[in-house]
Amino acid sequence: MRILNTDIIKNAVEKMCIEASYKIPENIVRCYYDALKIEESPLAKQILGQLIENANYAASNNVPSCQDTGMVVVFLKIGREVFLTGKPIEDMINEGVALGYEKGWLRKSVVSHPLERINTGTNTPAVIHFEFIDGDKVEITVMPKGFGSENMSAFAMLKPSDGIEGVRNFILDTVEKAGPNACPPLFIGIGLGGTAEKAMLLSKKALLRNPGYRSTIKKDAELELQLIDLLNQTGIGATGTGGTVTVFDVFVESYPTHIAGLPVAVNICCHAMRHKETVI
């Protein structure tokens, strides 16, 4: 048994919020460069160039790459041999977020009640997902999620008879509707199966996969490749002004489901795919 004071988690979250907002991960920026090589539209190329310059400028000047520094999604994987002491872990995560957003000059975009809409002034609460893993470590992932793209996410309960065709069409419709609003080129997380909320959660988790890595499930990997190809033929392009790179990658995560259902969740992330991981 390893004893861990939740104070450490607060400090880690504070740091990760700032780093994620300032520095777009290298493997994401690599996607921008790769797209530049295959994009056919001169205007889209000019825009991809701006994204590269923006990412570099933000990282070297310690400023957020985008003004929408998001609502914070935290994935916490807690080792079964860890014993947490100190204040409740949710509180410490939220304190970490509040500190990070204050000290890092990040925009606070969270409002209290969705219908009253009073800014909480701290960018809290975060959305926190817990999971248990083997061992004595705690893995924390912080993902500041912008709402230009979150707003274009969608969910459907398809009929089993809709099959792969129905799944493809729903995803295509969702990306077409997102169009220029979600700041393409996009990363697309797909959650297939489970129940309604399970599918949605899978689609968000899918976004954390490294670009270029295919699902280990053959059927899902095939669907990913088909979708990348299909979505890049829509012509939407970088920022929606027309082009041949509309998505950088598509990640499918699936789960067994009920005989009567075919849940499909599409979580859309803009090119500013920001996240930061730490193992404690």
Binding site: N54, S65, C66
Partner: peptide, 13 residues
């Protein structure tokens, strides 16, 4: 008109 969404650091210059 549109400015490049997400290129916020650059645009603020």
């Amino acid at each position: 008109m549109a400015a490049t969404g997400g290129a916020a650091a650059l645009l603020s210059r």
